[in-house]
Design a protein around this nucleic acid. Sequence first.
RNA 1: GCCCCUGUAGCUCAGUGGACAGAGCGUCGGCCUCCGGAGCCGAAGAGCACAGUUCGAGUCUGUGCAGGGGUACCA
Length: 579
Amino acid sequence: LADLKWQPIPFSGEWGVSTSFFQTAANEARAGKGNKLPVPQRAQEIAEQVKAEIGNVPGISHAEAVKGYLNLYFTTSEYARRVVDEVLASRADFGRGTPKTERVMVEYAQPNTHHSFHIGHARNTILGEVLARLVEFAGFETIRATYPGDMGLGVITVVWAYEKFYKGQEPEGIHERGQWLLKIYAEATALLEKRENETTEETAGREAYDAERREMLRKWEADDPHVYELWRVTREWSLEEFRDVLHILDVNMDVWFYESEANKLGKEIVDELIAKGIAEDERAQGGPVIVKIDEKLGLTKEKYRTMVILRSDGTTLYSTKDLALAKQKFEQYHVDRSIYVVDFRQSLHFQQVFKILELWGFPQAEKCYHLSYGYVTLPEGAMSARRGRVALFKEVYDEAIKRVLAVESERSGNIPENERVKIAEQIGLGALVYSMLSVDNNKDIVFDINGALSFDGRTGPYIQNAHVRANSILKKSKVEGQKSAAFDYELTRHEIELIEQISRFPNAVQQAANEYRPLVMAAYAYDLANAFHSFYHAVPVLQSEEEDVRNARLRLVAAAKQTIANALRLLDIKAPEVM
RNA sequence: GCCCCUGUAGCUCAGUGGACAGAGCGUCGGCCUCCGGAGCCGAAGAGCACAGUUCGAGUCUGUGCAGGGGUACCA
């Protein structure tokens, strides 16, 4: 019986577990054993047999064999009490997995400095943070790592334009300053972009600008003190904005890798890979340093192809830096599993990096995982800073708060004046965050602000509202919390559904963490909230006539509130007491 | 050329090889003298095509069609 695969009984309206015997029957048929009945009928026969054999089982009220399935119905009072008691004994730890020995690092939030943080970066950061919370809660020791891109031609373009046109200026306010840098970047790229029908004068001017910027990049690479200082100051403005965004999203990074630092590490590992015979140095012939991955793996068909790990001029690439960083993650941080939250266009890049790590001899290469996710675009098309077509995170966030405050008077309960803004932040962000999590990561998101900031239906506020309603009942109850309560009355189907959902939470945590899929938790949280709302509407709690029933239902409400809070916490969404 | 991702209701999305494919938005119709209506209850409405594997396929395999991405010195 224990070897069978059990699942909840669908659409019976009753409560229990179910299994089928089609597999057994099919195996028999293949082995030529048993009678000659068609599989479905034979399965039904076996189900009836097993039902007869098991007889009475503690905790099971009755059994039935139907259409090849065996359904076992729970003794509701017993099972309900166990679930509710467990939640209320464990509280915030309900659903936490047993400690695992492996250490996991999740790398996410890799925005470029000297730009501003847009909604696409937000999707990345939210996915990464929720994944980190999930694997941590599932029992793994977890390290959060961020990797800002603070170097390269894009960054230097801003530094160049800043010095040439804006030096000495500096807007007030962290986000205003960050967004100002993005404006400078857009202006600069417009100046440097080749236009149709430009006059020879214009061409000359544009090429002169381009030469200046490339000269500045060369100086940066050579540690020129003047360029370094310009870079350092503007970089810090960007990082200040970035840190504030992380604070808004309640993200606490353990490790900060910077691209400019990985750049230095990169040059060392290239020599090591050449010395080990993994990489081939073609610089003597004017070429780059490469790894012929397919050839090294003995593959005849092209799959991982060849990766360039150092430019012919000796400067580094993303590949160089990712290899260096991986080595550091393994050797300095002793990471067993390494997860990279990066958009799907870099799939080949990471497959190549992971294979090179394998060739390099790191056993952890096997447990490197690229969590790829789809692009965030706008209804008008791809985001483009140059065309001024970006949805900046901070602007969307401010708009979210504004919209919550606008509807607060008609929708809210009594919120203390000094908490109005705080609650609005939690609700607005809850809507935004949930909209990012409720789509599977391999799908693109067309960001529509009205959809993302909707508060009705399958949204963050819907789940938060379930928490608020549960809290509201508990606040009004004058009864002291009981140690336990027997559910030995006839439970309504709404109570059964709610308890069933609560009991699913620990499995949902494990599944979401094992599959690296925040969506699993997002979907679960909605189902749980949905079960609570239905229960809330249909089943009286404080008005229950009998005291025993009232006490049991109060404990159920407390357990539901706790489980909703735990799920929301994993989703990086606040669970307010009022809204 | 080769590789990867996606195709489910008007729209946006779910769906561990199992019973009757689920939601939200939108549309239509109900529900506040009752624990907070950011809610509840109901109606209409769906697996790109064709093969294959299987007792059983939205799910696995193949082919085709459609959209997106990648494919040595971009990030």
